[in-house]
Amino acid sequence: TVNGEEIKAAEYYKRMEWFRPEPQSALINMPVGFQVLRQMISERMIVQLAKSKGVAPTAPQIEARLAALYQENPNLKAQLAQAGRSEDDIRADLRNQEAQFNLLTAGITITDLEVEKHYKENPSEFKEPAKYKLRVVAVGDDAGEKSVDAALKAGKSFADVARQYSLDVTTKARGGEYGVVPETALSDESRKAVAITPVGSTTAWVRGPKNPVGEQSNARIKFLVEVITPAKNIALDAPMKSRLRRRLMLDKGTIRNKTSVGKDLEAATQAAKVTIAEPQFQQLYSQLLDRVRKAQG
């Protein structure tokens, strides 16, 4: 329990099913069950703090956010079902998110004029990138390039060439089918090559992307451009205006309120009465609070 508010076993075990530890978390070496419980305790603390400050999320606020999520992603319900999650699970997530939002944006107002001004002054933020439907063939050396070019010149389809010569195991069996990708998902060299290639044509050979440590891949890649969807401006309609207003509120609220909210939450955490049925977890939680107290001097 957290200040008398119970975390039920069913809720805990359901969270365990989809919980993914954060690699950079300070708790990463602790039992996963404790990491889950610590997260749930923190969420309870945030909602309780919002309630104590008079900014607890309301049911209409949560339903409005849920409706906005459905509008942004019409496939959300199917995705939830596939993941074994329900609308009530999402409402619980939104309750925690909106409590944080309300705490950070307390006293913050963003007018329609401020929203419209930001939209007009930052056009690059509101542009949907060009998208390309591509096929790809990847080889490892000059001989591979020559074999692919010769086969294409002889009239062989790009799909058959990819099946025969490509070293990309992900796309090879599908005839090099790469799918529809935004230009922002391509490497600089690939993006430049695709951008100057007409529909139905193949790009020049480009080098594969660099790995995380900056080493250049030895792969040589050629794309077939099947469909181009041009970049377009995103209109400032009602949903976009709502999303932009929230973002601007958070930007301003983070500057003004983040430090004070953090202090209030830490004080509430230290003062809270938390009872955990599992003795090992109770001990770990107490030790965690002690470390925080010592760190704060």
Rank of each mutant, 00 (worst) to 15 (best):
F158Y: 07
R20Y: 08
G84H: 07
P129F: 08
A268Q: 07
P123C: 10
L289V: 12
K263V: 02
R20H: 10
R20A: 07
H118V: 08
D290C: 12
I234C: 08
L248D: 04
A277V: 09
R256E: 10
E63V: 06
N29I: 06
L152V: 13
R256D: 07
N73F: 06
I108H: 03
V199N: 06
R15D: 06
A267L: 10
K156D: 08
S242H: 04
Q48G: 04
N233W: 10
E226C: 04
R220I: 05
I221P: 00
V148C: 03
D290Q: 14
G179L: 09
S260A: 13
S52T: 07
A64V: 04
V139E: 01
G200Q: 09
A204N: 05
P279D: 12
S260R: 15
V274I: 15
A78Q: 11
L104W: 01
F158V: 06
N96D: 11
A67S: 11
Q97P: 06
V169N: 11
E11L: 11
P239W: 11
D112M: 08
R38F: 13
A154Q: 13
I276N: 01
Y285A: 05
L224S: 00
P74W: 12
E11H: 07
P209Q: 02
P230Y: 15
S147D: 14
A268G: 03
I234D: 04
A59C: 04
E189K: 13
I7G: 01
A219P: 01
V274T: 11
K192R: 15
F158M: 03
S187Q: 13
I62V: 09
L186C: 05
A150E: 09
K127Y: 14
A159T: 04
K252H: 03
K77Q: 06
F281G: 00
G140L: 13
L94R: 00
E5Y: 14
Y70E: 06
A195V: 13
T171L: 07
R135A: 04
R91G: 02
N102D: 09
D251I: 05
A204S: 05
L244E: 03
K131G: 04
K117W: 07
T184N: 12
